[in-house]
């Protein structure tokens, strides 16, 4: 176990928790959060409320088990960049939001804290992508690669 793997697990479990929390509650709760950010057109808001928790969950699960790790890290970065943009525009526009709604009722964070945390996570995923061989320790990617190279011998 190394620090990179711990960070991979941390980000993975964070995404699993965030996705699960939204998926187990009525989707209208998260739809209300999206509507409060006032950034997507009407039809897309419902689509985003229904799909993004699943995306968060799958990215988290794949990151923890270490399957398609490089692609998943890219997906995590894209999602984090979207969160940073959405929350930042709410701060700039001074929308009347006191907390992010990222983790439902379990954790309430002020918007600037969310931008800071997401930015740190984004930077961490860049580091993970650059050290993919070390990050892949204890991963299915590693397991399949080893299996493949054994069968090739």
């Amino acid at each position: 176990m190394n620090l990179y793997v711990l960070i991979r697990f941390f980000i993975g479990f964070l995404f699993i928790f965030s996705g699960l929390e939204k998926l187990l509650a009525p989707y209208q709760n998260f739809l209300y959060v999206i509507q409060s950010y006032d950034v997507l057109p009407d039809g897309f808001e419902t689509a985003a409320a229904l799909s993004s928790p699943w995306i968060e969950l799958f990215l988290g699960v794949f990151l923890v088990v270490g399957l398609w790790t490089q692609w998943v890290l890219t997906g995590v970065r894209v999602l984090l960049a979207a969160f940073i943009f959405i929350v930042s525009q709410a701060i700039i526009r001074k929308l009347p939001l006191t907390e992010c709604g990222c983790f439902g009722e379990f954790l309430s964070l002020p918007l600037p804290v969310v931008v800071a945390l997401d930015s740190i996570l984004w930077v961490l995923t860049v580091f993970l992508s650059r050290k993919i061989e070390i990050v892949s320790f204890m991963s299915l990617d590693n397991y399949f690669n080893e299996k493949e190279s054994k069968s090739a011998r």
Partner: peptide, 14 residues
């Protein structure tokens, strides 16, 4: 194959 197993297990669990 593994990818689909994970996806299906997650969907059923959720």
């Amino acid at each position: 194959m593994t990818t689909w197993v994970i996806v299906v297990v997650c969907v059923i669990a959720v």
